[in-house]
């Protein structure tokens, strides 16, 4: 009797899980995207690529794709250097460093929608604390919700407040695990702190930095919570995730919503592949 490969045997539960929770819904979604299909209407019609054509010709889809990339870029550009700076600071020994490391992790533990509501309360015209200071300092009431740039600034603030610590903590772990010898050698050779940082520290933590960056970029492309709270998708701030929610779940149009999701997946897949290929050598 032929023996079953134990490796394969032990993988079956995982494969089944993957099939039912990932591959099947994924294929089902592609099937849905090619139909006129609303949950309250029992008549499902095959319409081929019509949903995809509608999505691609939709201004909202293009705007939301732009918003997704825009927020990904600005949030990443702020959070990575800030997180790295905090990590470097916290990697040093000083009084209270333990408490500081704990405090910095608090925002990550908060529910994203709760964080957004907190910031919204701070920025409510005439009622929020930040608006109060703005008026006291003579800047007047700031339109954080209706103006695209100021709403974007608020969204950036919310995301950076919550997720910069993610960079900080992961990079801190990388920093404290670095061997001391290269630093001692550099000190003997008389290297400046800047040179030590750019020539030793950064290259040493580069693999971790790349991985954490890829994770964060893919996560940022899914940004939705602050959008719902701050603008409800208005003022040009609607991201792809928020757009999918609006067109799929509210009208229960799983055909159209499915088509947006498929295009979104393609976008994410291509981007993830580019990033992984580009930084493959660093990761390995």
């Amino acid at each position: 009797m032929r023996k079953l490969n134990p490796g394969l045997l032990m993988s079956i539960p995982t494969l089944l899980f993957l099939f039912f929770w990932f591959f099947f819904p994924f294929l089902y979604n592609i099937y849905a995207s090619m139909h006129y299909w609303t949950l309250y209407n029992p008549n499902i019609q095959f319409i081929g690529a019509e949903n995809f054509i509608d999505v691609l010709s939709s201004i909202d889809f293009r705007n939301s794709a732009f918003a997704s990339f825009f927020y990904t870029i600005i949030c990443f550009a702020v959070e990575l250097p800030l997180g790295l700076g905090i990590a470097v600071l916290l990697s040093r020994e000083f009084k209270g460093v333990g408490i500081a490391r704990v405090i910095i992790a608090i925002p990550i533990l908060m529910i994203p929608i709760g964080t957004s509501i907190m910031w919204k309360l701070l920025t409510m015209p005439k009622l929020g604390l930040l608006q109060y200071f703005s008026e006291v300092l003579g800047f007047g009431v700031i339109d954080f919700y209706g103006n695209f740039w100021l709403a974007s600034l608020l969204i950036l603030l919310i995301d950076a407040w919550q997720w910069t610590p993610f960079f900080a903590i992961v990079l801190l772990a990388a920093l404290v695990s670095l061997p001391r010898e290269p630093y001692e050698a550099a000190k003997v050779d008389g290297a400046s702190p800047f040179m030590v940082f750019t020539k030793i520290t950064l290259p040493s933590i580069q693999p971790v930095m790349v991985i954490v960056s890829i994770l964060r970029v893919l996560d940022l492309l899914k940004l939705a919570d602050p959008i719902f709270v701050v603008t409800k998708g208005g003022s040009g701030t609607e991201t792809l995730s928020a757009y999918i929610w609006r067109v799929a779940f509210k009208p229960l149009d799983i055909g159209y919503g499915g088509a947006v999701a498929v295009l979104y997946w393609i976008l994410m897949f291509v981007l993830a592949n580019i990033l992984v290929r580009r930084f493959k050598s660093v990761i390995q």
Binding site: M124, V141, Y145, G146, V230
Partner: peptide, 15 residues
């Protein structure tokens, strides 16, 4: 008030 373009019922009520 600024930002009212994106007002929901709750926010309008608070204002």
């Amino acid at each position: 008030p600024p930002g009212s373009i994106n007002n929901t019922y709750e926010l309008g009520r608070e204002q």
